[in-house]
């Protein structure tokens, strides 16, 4: 399969300056990250606040450029000026705060914003807006003002806005952080549908463990480095290590882990309620 994203010893440094502009200190937000994402995968990047995961994500959309190392999106080097707009079209981005990324005053106008910028002809914009709103099941709200929508609905509109640009890959930077549990479920469901139905590569950045159990691959970041990598099953079997990184595991996994520690013969690891029920049945 083709490689959608690949980074090669990616380093990014924030330079802090004092009032005169002298360098006060350098913070290494991303530290020699090597990462490969294949087309069509559902990837999750985990990490607590300040682990560099958002900084890393902004490299995938050419919003930030590496201090050292290289980033390739669909074979295109992000540093090159001429690749910039193609990269931004191919790799769409959804941000954390739903209010700060909606530009239009009407839902359908916001979804049309991306295609308008790309210079898509008017009729095609309408087709794209229709299909994108249907894909996130927001077509009922197309004439509403974004101010009247819930957080989850606004985030789905943002996703539709990205889909309308026909990307190959969507990067979601903590899209659920400001939402209630209901909104969170809506957004994750929309993301998964995109991945499975449309075959769009999804990169989900989050600190909610429950959202990553269905991912194809999980990367765990800490202090700018990738410290764990593997399938959710491989990653969540290392409960102790995750705890050290101040990250939790899904509640069911935690319960299974504690039960195992107190002597029940439960296989390792458990990722869903169903698996736990099966395992407990086997214990009888």
């Amino acid at each position: 399969m083709k490689e959608m994203i690949s980074t090669d010893k990616l380093v990014f440094e924030y330079i802090r300056r004092d009032e005169e502009g002298n360098v006060e200190g350098i913070t290494r937000a991303v530290d020699e990250v090597d990462l490969r994402v294949k087309q069509g995968q559902f990837i999750a990047i985990l990490g607590h606040n300040g682990s560099g995961k958002s900084t890393l994500a902004k490299h995938f959309n050419a919003l930030l450029f590496p201090t050292e190392g290289e980033v390739y999106i669909d074979g295109m080097l992000t540093d090159k000026e001429e690749n910039l707009w193609e990269i931004r079209q191919e790799a769409g981005m959804v941000f954390q705060n739903p209010d700060n990324q909606i530009i239009g005053q009407v839902v359908e106008e916001d979804v049309g914003f991306g295609p308008e910028n790309m210079g898509v002809p008017t009729e095609e914009i309408w087709e794209r807006v229709d299909e994108s709103l249907k894909a996130v099941r927001m077509d009922k709200f197309r004439k509403s003002s974004p101010n009247h929508l819930s957080g989850g609905q606004k985030q789905r509109v943002s996703i539709a806005g990205v889909i309308a640009m026909h990307p190959k890959c969507i990067i979601m930077d903590e899209p659920t952080a400001m939402l209630d549990p209901n909104g969170r479920r809506e957004v994750i469901r929309a993301a998964r549908a995109l991945n499975q139905v449309e075959g769009i590569t999804v990169i989900l950045i989050t600190h909610y463990m429950e959202e990553v159990v269905d991912a194809d691959r999980v990367f765990v970041m800490d202090k700018g480095r990738i410290v764990m990598e593997g399938t959710p099953r491989q990653v969540f079997s290392q409960v102790e290590k995750l705890k050290e990184l101040r990250l939790g595991v899904p509640q069911v996994t935690m319960l299974a882990y504690e039960l195992r520690k107190s002597g029940l013969p439960i296989p390792d690891p458990i990722l869903s309620r169903k698996e736990l029920v099966e395992a407990l049945k086997a214990c009888r």
């Binding site: 931004r88 700060n100 295609p115 790309m118």
Partner: peptide
């Protein structure tokens, strides 16, 4: 802060001024 976020979101959606832009509702 909102202005900063919005500018980034607009850039991420290929906004680059009025040049070469089409209209959804001309």
């Amino acid at each position: 802060r909102r202005a900063n976020d919005l500018a980034m979101a607009m850039e991420a959606r290929c906004y680059r001024g009025g040049e070469g832009r089409t209209k959804m509702k001309p």
